Simulated scan of single mutants.
Amino acid sequence: MTAELVLIHGRSQHDRNPAELEQQWISSLKKGLAASSLELCLPDDKIHFVYYGDTLADLVAGVKPGTIADVIIKGEGDQNEAEKQFQAAIVEELRQQIGISDDEVKECLSVESVEMGALNRRWVQAILEAIDHHVPGASGLSLALFTRDVYQYLRNPGIRDAIENGVRRAIKPGVPAVVVGHSLGSVVAYNVLKREGNHGGWSIPLLVTLGSPLAVGAIRQALTPNHFPESVSSWFNAMDDDDVVSLYPLDQKHFPLDREIENHTGVDNWTKDKHGIEGYLGDPIVARKIHEVCCT
Rank of each mutant, 00 (worst) to 15 (best):
H254W: 00
V135D: 06
G185H: 10
K64T: 12
I131L: 03
Y52E: 03
G117V: 03
G282L: 05
K31H: 08
C294T: 09
I127W: 00
F49V: 02
V178Y: 02
T209D: 02
D242M: 11
S203T: 00
R11G: 04
F228W: 01
A61P: 11
A19Q: 06
V188E: 09
A170K: 01
E230T: 15
D45N: 15
Q13S: 00
S36P: 07
Y153C: 09
V6G: 01
N80D: 15
P65A: 12
D149S: 03
L145W: 08
A170P: 07
D103S: 08
A144H: 04
S12K: 06
L207E: 14
A162T: 15
A177N: 05
L247Q: 06
D70N: 15
Q252Y: 11
L214G: 10
A118T: 07
L40K: 01
V180Y: 00
L223Y: 00
V91S: 15
R155W: 14
G279M: 03
C41D: 13
N156W: 15
K194F: 13
H133Q: 11
I68L: 10
L257V: 14
A238S: 14
G181L: 07
A189K: 04
S36W: 09
C41Q: 13
I47T: 09
W270P: 10
K194Q: 11
A218D: 14
A3D: 07
H9V: 14
K274E: 15
M1G: 09
K253Q: 15
R155T: 12
S231I: 10
K253G: 13
G32N: 03
G99Q: 05
K106H: 12
D273F: 13
Q13T: 13
K274I: 12
L210P: 09
D283A: 05
Q96R: 06
P205E: 07
A162N: 05
V188D: 08
L223H: 00
E39W: 06
Y280C: 01
V150Q: 00
E93D: 13
S139V: 12
G75E: 08
S234K: 04
L40A: 03
K194N: 15
S110R: 11
A88V: 05
A126V: 05
F146Q: 06
T296E: 14
D15E: 05
P136D: 13
S212C: 03
T67F: 14
K74P: 02
A61F: 11
K74Y: 14
W25M: 00
C295T: 14
I261N: 01
Q125W: 06
Y153S: 13
L38F: 10
G32D: 01
S27I: 00
